[in-house]
Simulated assay, not measured.
Amino acid sequence: MSVETVLNDKDTEAPLLRIEGLTKRFTGRGGRTVHAVEDVSFAIRRGTTIGLVGESGSGKTTAGRAILRLIEPTAGKAVFDGVDLFALPERELRAYRQRLQIIFQDPFSSLNPRMRIDAIIGEALDARGFPRGAKRRERVAELLTLVGLSPDHARRFPHEFSGGQRQRIGIARALAVEPDFVVADEPVSALDVSVQAQVLNLLSDLQKRLGLTLLFISHDLSVVEYLCDEVVVMYLGRVMERGPARQVYAEPRHPYTKALLATAPVPDPTVRRVHVPLAGDIPSPLDPPSGCVFRTRCPHAIEDCAKAVPPAETVGENHAVACIRHSELAAA
């Protein structure tokens, strides 16, 4: 049974976006293949936020950009509102562009430093055929107000703002086309901790008010726990565990998920987490380990872990894990 089937068999309506077998490989030096994303499958229900988490090099950003076809996938499907985006020619894909948006990690480099804020947001409005003049100025003012900025900021340049303010501008630009689905690619990782909370609160509020469907990419499980309804844990291009956030955080089943949670900060000093060693660095995607790609760092790996890629198995309601020893380890 596939991950997508396991996690959505109780849904009463088709998900807004269904990813099936997403694979992205690059050609590296000397013609070697970089296995960036391998056979990733999941689905996102309308009006929910799903977190895609893992260490740097896990493939989560590549997966997000491949879904939007900002980079071309090698294989798989991305069925958005009943249409496979990967099968569309470029001309037909353009019709879906305004329904699919992205918020980038670096709020400064994603904004043209030579353009004023009204022109930056205006570019997105051009894509909708929004008329120029007073109506456009009113719309820009509405969008800036929506993200907690002043309409007077429209005539300023990006360098006149703080990092948190620039990220709010990036969010306003993404929302200008009234999208249905937004990829938020590490949107708070470049911000100070105090500012992170403000931007996260904004995203949570906007998701509820506008009914957005979000794919939130992050390496920080504490951030994902706060914002997301479901969690997908990735390691070296593959999905290790997936399920409702409350279940994954309360009862993590994959050794990698447990290791990530053990290193995440906890604001409550009375809470004690069991330390799970996570030695070494993530392997190179040029030469991923055979079988379970996490086995070279897993304290519970056995010889069988090297023989085949473990299938996703159901461990609870809408909760799946790809580990051949998960039942044994849970009972220990």
Rank of each mutant, 00 (worst) to 15 (best):
R91Y: 10
G148H: 01
P107K: 00
I103T: 03
R91I: 04
L125D: 03
P131F: 10
E138M: 06
A124M: 06
D118Q: 11
V147K: 02
R116N: 05
Q105K: 00
R97C: 08
A134L: 00
A95H: 10
R128L: 15
E123Q: 11
R139N: 09
V83H: 08
D126Q: 09
A127S: 14
R91A: 15
D84Y: 11
Q101V: 08
D126N: 13
G122M: 03
D118Y: 13
R136H: 15
I121R: 03
E142S: 11
P113N: 01
R128V: 14
Q101G: 10
G129N: 00
A119F: 06
R136I: 13
R139K: 15
R132S: 13
R132W: 11
E138Y: 05
R136W: 14
D106E: 11
A119W: 09
T145R: 15
E92I: 09
L111K: 00
I103Q: 02
I102C: 10
D84F: 10
L100Y: 13
R114C: 01
R91T: 12
Y96A: 11
F108M: 02
I102R: 04
R137P: 02
L85T: 07
D118H: 14
I120R: 03
I121T: 09
A119C: 06
R132P: 08
A134E: 14
A95Q: 13
F130V: 11
R139I: 06
